[in-house]
Amino acid sequence: MAKSNKPIVWGLFAAGGTISAFVVPAMILVTGLLVPLGVFGEDAMSYERMTAFLGNWIVKVVLLGVVILTLWHAAHRLRVTAHDFGIRSDGTIAMGVYGFAGLFSVIALFAVLAI
């Protein structure tokens, strides 16, 4: 049987799609809307609270998992969707989308480990 990287690519895509479906709507609601609009009070995401929260190793691992898998999911889906928008240069698109996901994954890893 010919070797293919499709199962890995697809497995990660599906994992990212599932995890992001469960948690990203609530994350956006909290970090992008409720907290900035002051629903949880003035210091809901204060520096002290956030550094304490991210000081926990379980939080670090879970957050990194969510961020990296979601970025991968989005990159892979956008690569396929680019074709539907009439863009036929798959190689360039693949480099761009996977590069974006990879770059932000590495930055996230360094930042989370340093906090």
């Binding site: 990203v24 994350m27 970090t31 956030m50 932000f104 930055i107």
Partner: peptide, 18 residues
Amino acid sequence: CVFLALYMAGLVIGLVRL
């Protein structure tokens, strides 16, 4: 997926700022 990626990028920038 575009909005998921943009939100995550913003979140990662937040981690750097933190």
